[in-house]
Every structure is written in structure tokens, then in C-alpha cells.
Design a protein around this nucleic acid. Structure first.
Length: 961
RNA sequence: GCGCGGGUGGUGGAAUGGUAGACACUCAGCACUUAAAAUGCUGUGCCCAAAAGGCGUGCGGGUUCAAGUCCCGCCCCGCGCACCA
């Protein structure tokens, strides 16, 4: 046989596979189905590099493995062709987007083809094809019919220099990506999809998906559900109500002022004459500053007083109303009640503008683990108590207590006796427990916590209400501590920065915080105080009570708020699916009827944005001017096109039935193939595509088009391939590595594929390695050489248990690793297998009768990774059908165990020797042999074995004294 | 600040609580060759000339006969979100 040369075999097999339809999925089949899908690519000007290829290689390995395991596999490919990047590429190269897409898809397809991926190309689709976007438009009409598409005015990024609307991704650090000028916002009438109607379901259904926690959390965060209350505050000497949203109605009595965002409509109405000038100046400045600036969280709080006051609906307190840009107009009601004691931002603001701070929640800590864990089913004994914080000013150390009776480290604490002042009680406790007698009172700010723990001495559950008292040590003079106290605990001085690690009481972290600043903001749960009749309630219970009372008083209600906004789909751009509605003077907004679809995108000469905020289609009179479908009178078409994400929100369904002319897909085919079993792609789609596709799927379910409500059951996010120096690969940096060049150099697609999987865990980012690619090429070449030599040999009749063992072990490992998607170790197992076969060949030649079977098995195991060389060698050793439709090998468990095994011997936890024994040798014999081992013997000399642990067939551990 | 990853030789990475460094890359040596490449074989964590021995999985503690792995507390790097009340 000739030497291994990928160029001789790869394109040959690619043609054979394609012409024989080897990878076509069958719509009617008795086998169980698997739908393996990779995100369909965006055919931009930049060709695919090895990072993109990793995505498809993973999908292809899964698809091929499952095909061989007997599944009916759907593994399709198509093109996400509409959208901005294609349009910009076309503008830049002065060609039409249609031509650009045609060129780019051709290039991409050729790249995918040359990698030998097992796609069912008969299902190829292109989202810019009228046969496809007809149905995207059909879905728009469906959403409209269901009340999920609506039109309203909204602000959009606008570049005043280029006179064009910009998409979010075209705004870089507040500037236009093309001319570098600062962008502004412009009000335009836009179409939206009402994804917020589905917020709860999108959130809830996440729980059942086999997706990474990271992506699920990104979606949860994006949806941003928060439960709370809307509270109406009356505005003094005005009929206006000031409505705020809060998640902490339990802190209502702690509100000391109100804040409106600069955009809030009430600002102008309620500002007093005296304050008018200040407020106007502030609001103007806020509106003029860029969003980039306003979103900075590290800048100092700013704001002005409006002169107006609001009234707390429950306490009746009078609260000054301020305007400040730290309150966002886009979230909640654009106004807040400020609770500086329990909110960091409000605290910062209150500090700066000298506004009052009222604490209404006292922290509550319950010990639930460790030696002081409270006993369930036991009543609490309540005690008023003190915590003495004693600092030694000379050393900046704090007086702490370490208990001798149990593991507990804390501060000096104790109960307050009847009619005793807290400061006196604290000083007394310090004296009794530690003997220090000369203390100077620094402060007693009235700061409390509740600490619930099990009191070991008193043997009862304690609920201590601790008050903090702060002292400095005057001198180190001490009196004698009673014998009883001395036997229980000992005083220790701990440096300030060591306190946190020293404390092991449940409130330890908080102690540190309170020592730093006794008036620190506390935003957790606790016990309500300073709140009239609500005093003493748990904060969570108080929340419910206050919401209830507000509802009764008609000044508030419980509400759920979401960060997620409706999905703006209008694009003032040419290259997208036209929005299928017309505007009629008498009928208003009129949707097209289904038989008027597809509404084709007209061919135009100029696709550059017109400059007035409308799409280039606005200049095409033959497109714009039409008749109203309802009354037949003159009407104008919508000239905006749909966001590209609309097209990609249903493509996975079209693959199930790609040539259907009567519907987007038939229900039976969709229900057969979907949901997608494995969806593979990068994490960049986390909150856009993956959320939109889930939304559309749920709408389709509600419409009765399909029987499932989640499109992708398992999502796999592959790690990025970085340039060899660790930087991101990008065309602009000129550091991309494309498979084409590597194939041209002679490595071949198979080596690249194996490298993509072997380079590291598939879900982790890794730097590409040119040297490593040489390694996988070498590996394939060794297989080629081995098979060549086998074919040249004369064979033999002997039996080789060793050969069988190598192969069964390899089947077991590759099988297990592929089920776990541990591709890198699966490849390593194959490499070890080949190394083993080389050794065996050197020892015994090809005499064993099992060699034919062994090589067949090796090639089958290799097929999902390196399909071309597997196929070529499969044919060479006499295979009649393709190796890729062979069934996956099975292993025999009795070949997985070795006859002779090595037992490690440990003495006091260290390895001191090794024994080679027959598998299943009993412990007594191993112990005897172990004690005779020279090194082991030396370590046992003059010592006594006090414990022996034996892990069968693995290790013997001796503990000596 | 919050969420999610990650930290193991010169490098990429392996390790159900049970011999850390599988498998590769790199490098060195040997064989083949007139020579080189290719190929095959051997070696390759660190300290010590070597042996013996010791040290080693970001740092500090802990549990255990035994910890990369489990527990507690930190540090660093990457990604995402972020004045969301």
C-alpha cells in the first residue's frame, strides 16, 4: 500500500458519501430518532477557522456515534443568511447582499464538505430564500393574530453624522462603529414581539432543561423576575400619586426619602418654584450625558431636592422627594422609596446629602450547623444581652473569647441583669470573663443583632438579643478570673484582619462588618423594629403583612417585575425579511393574508441606509405603494425588515420538513424529530437566540402546531479555540487558522478533526497548537502503517488473549468516554490501543488469528473521529459496505480484568513498595508478601502494626507506631 | 458586587477518596540512512553526580490509614451580568 496521504482519499470518500446519500435521515423509520444540531452558521465574509470547526466536529462525532449505535439520526445544516453582517459585508465590497451570501455560503459549504461532516445536505436551507422567509413572515402574522406583535414608538440608537440607525452591536463605547461620532437616541415607530407575556414560562421551564447552569442563570438573570410591591405615596399638596416598586415592603418604615429618575414625568409637576432652576439644570445634564457614563456604578451619587414631599401610606411620615440619576427610568416605575439603613445605594446617597437613616431590620442569625446548632423541637429562651467589643489601641487587636469546652470562638458576651445599663453589663462581663478592668467606653450606638444558638452550659436553645458596646483598653491591668470562668474559656487578642477567620460563630462575618462600621448597611433578613405594630415580626412575614395592609388601604399591591423587555424586531435595514403589513388611511395597520406571502424583498441598486431613519426600502416606490388588503384603497407597506433572530427562531423546525410548500412544517414530522436531542454551539447565543427560539416554540405549542414546548432538551456549549498565543481568533487581528490551509499542507481533515477533540475537554477554551496537530497526524499514520503491514503479512492461526484484551478494553473505554462526551480521553484510549498493538506486533508479529477482527474493531471505533481514513482502510481490509453504517462494537466484560495486578503498599500513608500478584489473591497472602518486601521491611523495623487497610486488587495500607 | 467556569510538569491535559502526571506536544539519546527528513525504539515533574531519600496538584487550615478529589477560609485568571430598588 502507498503511504498515508489524506489528499488521495478524503475528497474521494466525500463524493462517494454524498452521491450515495449515506447520511440522509429517513422520515419513516422504526429505529429510535436522534436530532443532532449545531447552530447554523452565519455565512459572513470571514471564512470558518479551526474554532468554528470544533463545534461541527463535536456534533459530527456525536451524530456518527449515534448512527452506529442504531439511531435514526437527523444531522442537518443550513445558513443563517439574513442580517446586518452580510449587509455590511456587501456594502463594503459594493456587491448585493444576495450575491455576497451566495458566494459566502458556497465557501462555507465547501469548507464543511472538505471536513467530511455527515450532514444530510438534502435538507439544506437558507433563511434569505423566499421559500423560507415566506414562513418567517407567516409566523409574524401568527404572532400578530395572537396579540403578540405590536407597534409603538421607541428610542433607537442614531448616528447624527452617518444619519443612520445603528443596532446595539454597532455602538462601541457610546460611539458609532463607522465614523466614531457619539451616538444619540431617536424616537421611531417600531414593531415588538411581546416576549414578556411568556416571561414566567420561559423562567419556569428552564428547570427541566439539560443545559449548563451558566446559561440557565444568564437567562434567569436576563428575565430578571423579582417579586415585590407597588406602593403609592401621596404627594403633599398635590393630587398626584407617586408610585414606586420595591422588593422590600417590610422596610417601608425605614424609608426616609424618595428618589425619582430624571426622566420621571412627575419631576416637572411637583418641583417647587424655589427648586425649579436646580432641578431643570440637573435633569438636562443627566439627559445630555451618555448612557455609558450613566451606567458607571463607581461614580459618586448626584441628585437634587425637588422641594416636594411624599407621605408614607402606613406611617404618615413626610419624606422629601429627590431627583437622582442612580434611579433608572427603565426599571420598575422609575421611582423608589429610599431606605438608607438597608440599601447600599440609598445609604451612599443619604450620607452625601445628610439625609436621615433609620434602621428597621435587626439581623437574625440561627446556628444550624456545628456544636452550637439549635435543637429542633425545643423552645427558645430569650435574653437581652450585650456584646463587648474591646480594642487595644496600642496593638489594634480585639479581645476575643475561645471556649475550652467546645469549639467556639467569639467576642465577650453576656446577659444584662435587671435594671442594668448595657454599657455597665458589658464592662462587667469583660471583667468576669477576662479580668481586664480598665476600659474606656467609646460608643454604644444602639446596634442589635439576634443570635439563635444552643447554649451548651445551660443546655437550652437561646435567643439572644445582643446589643453592641464598644470599648478601648486603657491598660492591661487585670484582676483574677474565677476558677469556674477560667475552666470554661480563655481570652485571646486577635488582630483586626484575622478576626474573620478566627470567629466560627454563626454571626462571625457580620461581627467583622460591624466592628468595621457599627452603622453598616444590612440588606439581609431579620427582625422588624421601629415599625409600629409590625415590630418583632420576621422580615419575610412582615413583607406579606404590609402588602396585605396596603391592599386593604388601596395604596399598594403585590407585583412581579421583570427586567426583560419586549423584543424589538424592526430593523431599518434592507437585508432582512420584510414585515408583512401595510398601513391604510382608513383601516390603519392591516396584515397581509397568507396567500400574499412571501412578500418578496425587492431587488434594489442602493442598499445603504437612506439617512432619514427609514430603511432603503422606503425609496422603492413600487414596493411601498400598494393596495389595502381590506378595503382595496391606497396603502403603504411597512418598510422595515425583521431582526435576523426572527429567522433563526424556528429553523430547527424547518429541518424536520424542509421542502413543505403548504406549511412551515407538518405537525407529524416536527413531533417525530423534535425536540432537538443535542444542540451544540458557543455560549454567545445564551440570551438572544436561545431565548427567542424558546419563546417561538411556546407560541407554536399554544397555537397547536406542535406538541412540545421546549426546542432544545440538551444544550452543549463548546469551548473556544484561541490563537496559539492565547488571544481570540479574528479576521481583523489576522490570527485566524483555517482548516483549508492545514489540509493543503497535507495534514488532512481527519488529523484536524482528531486534534479538535484531543486538544482538551470539548467545553473548555484552549489555545490551538500546530505541534499538536503533527501529533494527531502521526497517530493516524501509525494506524495506516499498521494496517498496511497487516495486509502485507501472511497471518497465522494462533490465538492471542493479549490482543483480545487490548481491544475489549479499548471498546469499553471509547464507548464509555463517548457516552460522557469525553472525546479527548476517547482519543487517548485509541492511541494507547495503537501503541499496544505495535508492541504486540513487535512481540508476536501478525500470527494471531484475531488480527482481522482487531483491526475492524479499531476502524469502527475510529470512524466517528476520523471518517475518511477509517473508510479507506475499512475497504482495504475487505469491508463491503461503508464503515459508517456498521454497528458499534461491543465488549466482553471478562476481558476487562487483568490476570496479574500490581498492589501498592503504603506504610503510614506513604508508598513504600509494590507487589505483583495474581488477581484475586487473598489479603493474608498479600500481607505476608508485603512484609517481606525490602523497603517495606525497613519501615516496619522495630514498630508495631496497629491498623491494616486492604483495598482489593489495589492497595494495602499499614499503619505502624 | 453577583452568577458560572478554571488554577496539576517546559506545554495541552489524565486521574469512581486508593501508586498524581494517562495520552500527546517539546526536548534528548539510540536504530535505520552516505546524509537529512520520515519512521521505529528508549528516556523526559522538581531537588541531589547517582543511589537512598526528600519535595510536589494556586495559598492557609481541617477530616481521613490515605486528599488534586471531601469540608472551612482565602488568592489569582477567564466569561457573563451589573446603580434592576
Amino acid at each position: 500500500m502507498k503511504r498515508y496521504n489524506p489528499k488521495d482519499i478524503e475528497s474521494k470518500w466525500q463524493k462517494v458519501w454524498e452521491s450515495s446519500g449515506l447520511y440522509r435521515a429517513s422520515d419513516k423509520d422504526s429505529r429510535p430518532k436522534k436530532y443532532i444540531l449545531e447552530y447554523f452558521p452565519y455565512p459572513s465574509g470571514a471564512a470558518m477557522h479551526v474554532g468554528h470547526v470544533r463545534n461541527y466536529t463535536i456534533g459530527d462525532a456525536i451524530a456518527r456515534f449515534n448512527r452506529m449505535r442504531g439511531f435514526n439520526v437527523l444531522h442537518p445544516m443550513g445558513w443563517d443568511a439574513f442580517g446586518l453582517p452580510a449587509e455590511n459585508y456587501a456594502i463594503k465590497n459594493n456587491i448585493s447582499p444576495k450575491v455576497a451570501i451566495a458566494e459566502n455560503t458556497k465557501r462555507f459549504k465547501q469548507q464543511l464538505m472538505q471536513m467530511g461532516f455527515s450532514y444530510d445536505w438534502s435538507r439544506e436551507l437558507n433563511s434569505s430564500d423566499p421559500n423560507y422567509y415566506k414562513w418567517t413572515q407567516w409566523f409574524f402574522l401568527l404572532l400578530y393574530r395572537r396579540g403578540l406583535a405590536y407597534r409603538r414608538e421607541s428610542l433607537q440608537w442614531w448616528c447624527p453624522f452617518d444619519k443612520t440607525v445603528l443596532a446595539n452591536e454597532q455602538v462601541e463605547a457610546g460611539r458609532c462603529w463607522r465614523c466614531g461620532n457619539e451616538v444619540e437616541k431617536k424616537a421611531l415607530k417600531q414593531w415588538f414581539f411581546k416576549i414578556t407575556d411568556y416571561a414566567d414560562r420561559l423562567l419556569l421551564d428552564l428547570d427541566d432543561l439539560n443545559w449548563s447552569d451558566s446559561i440557565k442563570n444568564m437567562q434567569r438573570n436576563w428575565i430578571g423576575k423579582s417579586e415585590g410591591a407597588e406602593i403609592n405615596f401621596a404627594v403633599e399638596s398635590s393630587t398626584d400619586k407617586l408610585k414606586v416598586f420595591t422588593t422590600r415592603p417590610d422596610t417601608l418604615f425605614g424609608a426616609t426619602f424618595m428618589v425619582l429618575s430624571p426622566e420621571h414625568p412627575l419631576v416637572e409637576k411637583i418641583t417647587t418654584k424655589e427648586q425649579k432652576q436646580h432641578v431643570t439644570t440637573y435633569v438636562k445634564a443627566a439627559q445630555a450625558s451618555s448612557d455609558i457614563f450613566r451606567e458607571k456604578t463607581d461614580r459618586e451619587k448626584t441628585g437634587v431636592f425637588t422641594g416636594a414631599y411624599a407621605l408614607n401610606p402606613l406611617s404618615g411620615n413626610k419624606l422629601p422627594i429627590w431627583v437622582a440619576d442612580y434611579v433608572l427610568s427603565g426599571y420598575g416605575t422609575g421611582a423608589i422609596m429610599a431606605v438608607p439603613a438597608h440599601d447600599e445605594r440609598d445609604y451612599e446617597f443619604a450620607q452625601k446629602f445628610k439625609l436621615p437613616i433609620v434602621s428597621v431590620i435587626e439581623p437574625k442569625f440561627i446556628a444550624d450547623t456545628g456544636e452550637s446548632a439549635v435543637l429542633k423541637n425545643q423552645e427558645y429562651v430569650k435574653r437581652e444581652a450585650v456584646v463587648a467589643v474591646v480594642r487595644n489601641p496600642k496593638t489594634d487587636e480585639y479581645l476575643c473569647i475561645s471556649w475550652k469546652t467546645h469549639r467556639m470562638n467569639g467576642l465577650v458576651t453576656g446577659g444584662i441583669d435587671d435594671s442594668e445599663e448595657p454599657a455597665a453589663a458589658a464592662a462587667r462581663e469583660v471583667l468576669e470573663e477576662t479580668g481586664y478592668k480598665n476600659l474606656k467606653l467609646i460608643s454604644d450606638p444602639g446596634v442589635y443583632i439576634h443570635s439563635l444558638f444552643y447554649h451548651r452550659q445551660k443546655q437550652q436553645n437561646r435567643w439572644a438579643h445582643f446589643r453592641f458596646v464598644f470599648f478601648d483598653l486603657i491598660n492591661e491591668e487585670r484582676s483574677k478570673v474565677s476558677a469556674k470562668e477560667a475552666s470554661l474559656l480563655k481570652p485571646v487578642w486577635i488582630a483586626k484582619d484575622k478576626l474573620e477567620s478566627f470567629f466560627n460563630v454563626v454571626e462571625g462575618k457580620y461581627l467583622q462588618k460591624i466592628i468595621d462600621n457599627p452603622l453598616a448597611v444590612y440588606s439581609g433578613e431579620g427582625v422588624v423594629v421601629n415599625s409600629g405594630k409590625y415590630d418583632g415580626m420576621d422580615s419575610s412575614a412582615c413583607r406579606e403583612q404590609i402588602v396585605h395592609d396596603l391592599e386593604v388601604a388601596k395604596s399598594g399591591k403585590g407585583v412581579t417585575n421583570y427586567k426583560m423587555r419586549d423584543w424589538l424586531i424592526s430593523r431599518q435595514r434592507y437585508w432582512g425579511a420584510p414585515i408583512p403589513v401595510v398601513y391604510c388611511e382608513s383601516d390603519g395597520i392591516v396584515p397581509l393574508s397568507e396567500d400574499q406571502l412571501p412578500l418578496k424583498l425587492p431587488e434594489v441598486s442602493a442598499i445603504e441606509p437612506s439617512g432619514d431613519g427609514r430603511s432603503p426600502l422606503a425609496a422603492v416606490n413600487s414596493f411601498v405603494n400598494t393596495k389595502c388588503p381590506k378595503c382595496g384603497g391606497p396603502a403603504e407597506r411597512e418598510t422595515d425588515t425583521m431582526d435576523g433572530f426572527a429567522c433563526s427562531s424556528w429553523y430547527f423546525l424547518r429541518f424536520a420538513d424542509p421542502h413543505n410548500k403548504d406549511a412551515p412544517f407538518s405537525k407529524s414530522q416536527a413531533d417525530y424529530w423534535l425536540p432537538v436531542d443535542d444542540y451544540i454551539g458557543g455560549a454567545e447565543h445564551a440570551v438572544m437566540h436561545l431565548l427567542y427560539a424558546r419563546f417561538w416554540t411556546k407560541v407554536m405549542k399554544d397555537e397547536g402546531l406542535i406538541d412540545f414546548s421546549e426546542p432544545f432538551m440538551t444544550l452543549r456549549n463548546q469551548g473556544m479555540i484561541l490563537a496559539p498565543n492565547g488571544s481570540k481568533m479574528s479576521k481583523s487581528k489576522g490570527n485566524t487558522i483555517e482548516p483549508d490551509g492545514l489540509i493543503e499542507q497535507g495534514y488532512g481533515a481527519d488529523s484536524i478533526r482528531v486534534m479538535e477533540l484531543f486538544i482538551g475537554p470539548w467545553d473548555q477554551s484552549v489555545n490551538w497548537s500546530v505541534e499538536g496537530l503533527g501529533g494527531t497526524y502521526h497517530f493516524l499514520q501509525r494506524i495506516w502503517t499498521l494496517v498496511s503491514e497487516y495486509l502485507d503479512s501472511s497471518g497465522g492461526e494462533k490465538e492471542s488473549e493479549a490482543l483480545k484484551q487490548i481491544m475489549h478494553k479499548t471498546i469499553h473505554r471509547v464507548d464509555k468516554d463517548l457516552l460522557e462526551l469525553s472525546f479527548n480521553t476517547a482519543v487517548a484510549a485509541l492511541m494507547e490501543c495503537v501503541n499496544g498493538l505495535y508492541k504486540l506486533k513487535a512481540a508476536e508479529g501478525f500470527e494471531a488469528v484475531e488480527w482481522q477482527w482487531a483491526i475492524e474493531t479499531l476502524l469502527k471505533l475510529l470512524a466517528p473521529f476520523a471518517p475518511h481514513i477509517s473508510e479507506e482502510l475499512w475497504q482495504a481490509i475487505g469491508g463491503e459496505e461503508s464503515v459508517h453504517i456498521e454497528s458499534w462494537p461491543e465488549y466482553e466484560p471478562n476481558y476487562l480484568v487483568d490476570e496479574t495486578i500490581k498492589i501498592a503498599i503504603q506504610v503510614n500513608g506513604k508508598i513504600r513498595g509494590e507487589l505483583s500478584v495474581a488477581a484475586g489473591t487473598d489479603q493474608a497472602e498479600i500481607e505476608t508478601k508485603a512484609k517481606e518486601e525490602l523497603k517495606v521491611k525497613a519501615h516496619l523495623e522495630g514498630k508495631q502494626i496497629i491498623k491494616t487497610i486492604y483495598v482489593p486488587d489495589k492497595l494495602l495500607s499499614l499503619v505502624v507506631k
